[in-house]
């Protein structure tokens, strides 16, 4: 979908489907330097001084929105955040109208969170600056996947042949899809684990990611895993009849201490947040010694700085 396929011409970050391993390594290196910036006496550099970043969040979010705000501020950009509720969207303004307005006000970057898959691609056709996808429908969430990749790389080193298990509602998950692109490009072995209703047929996944493993049994999947990543279980999945009961889901697919014990002794427990503690992950595992869930949040700011920086030269 992204027409700017070469790194030299990349103007937007919409998905990781066309990123090479080399590009991923570059952004990881830049992320390391950005993380250092956040540990300096003055946690701010003048890199994007005078630039305007507009966060357009047409869907609720805490950490992604706050993280992009902090990232833009750490780079000295002017940042403002608008949501569908506090704009003329309520009066019927279309996404494209809002984009034109934001452009006329001088925005250099739009960071878009939108419930509809593909919305950021539409925005690129009406905006002269750079667009960063902060999550669109069930399609992509590149900044989450990059911060996940950074966290894994920071803790585990090279990811080739590492066993990464993503458990939960992968069928509806943009986090899972963007992670699949990044992780398979880096040579990791990814297992998706979920009940059949939340994963669909294996052929659907293998058509795009031939080496992915599909599992319906977390006890098998967790064996020897280097990463156990739980996804948020959205409550509407229950109402949609995709799950018999939350309790059954938790029993078969929840991350608990017994399942962490099946994994590698150095396993990383991850979750993109927000967590339903007691549903997809038990509280003791979420805050336990193998959990890097808080590190993911910290790294999120650094990686979003890296993303904004990478687009600076073309903006």
């Amino acid at each position: 979908m992204n027409s700017q396929s070469t790194p030299d011409r990349r103007r937007h970050i919409l998905d990781l489907d066309d990123w090479s391993a080399e590009e991923l390594r570059t952004v990881l290196t830049i992320g390391t330097q950005m993380k250092d910036v956040l540990a300096r006496p003055v946690k701010q550099v003048p890199t994007l001084r005078g630039k305007i970043v507009v966060n357009m969040f047409w869907e609720d979010s805490t950490r992604t929105r706050v993280s992009f705000e902090l990232a833009a501020k750490a780079l000295s950009a002017n940042v403002l955040t608008v949501g569908a509720k506090d704009t003329s969207v309520k009066k019927g303004e279309s996404l494209v109208d809002t984009v034109r307005t934001v452009q006329a006000l001088g925005a250099d970057y739009i960071v878009l969170r939108h419930p509809h898959s593909g919305a950021p691609y539409l925005v690129t056709q009406h905006f002269r600056g750079s667009v960063i996808n902060a999550g669109d429908g069930r399609h992509a969430h590149p900044s989450q996947a990059l911060l996940d990749l950074f966290t894994m790389h920071e803790q585990l080193g090279e990811l080739a042949d590492k066993k990464i298990v993503i458990v939960g509602d992968v069928l509806h998950s943009r986090v899972a899809r963007s992670n699949l692109w990044a992780l398979t490009t880096m040579g990791a072995k990814v297992t998706l684990c979920a009940p059949p209703t939340l994963i669909g047929p294996a052929s659907y996944w293998k058509a795009t990611w031939p080496n992915v493993t599909i599992s319906h049994n977390l006890d098998h999947a967790a064996e020897g895993a280097d990463v156990l990543m739980a996804l948020r279980l959205q409550h509407e999945r229950m109402e949609g009849g995709l799950l018999p009961s939350l309790r059954e889901y938790t029993r078969r697919f929840g991350l608990n201490a017994a399942r962490v014990a099946l994994a590698s002794p150095n396993v990383l427990v991850m979750h993109p947040g927000p967590m339903n503690e007691g549903v997809e992950i038990t509280p003791d595992v979420a805050t336990g010694p193998r959990s890097v869930i808080e590190t993911q949040v910290t790294n999120g700011v650094a990686m979003r700085m890296a993303m904004l920086y990478q687009l600076a030269g073309v903006n």
Binding site: T29, T32, Q33, V37, Y309, G313, V314, N315
Partner: peptide, 22 residues
């Protein structure tokens, strides 16, 4: 010291250069 984040020509140089450690 890497001065990459303090450049005055970042926006006219094309893709942002790789950063070294400070």
């Amino acid at each position: 010291l890497d001065i990459g984040l303090y450049r005055d020509d970042l926006h006219s140089r094309g893709p942002a250069p790789l950063l070294g450690r400070t």
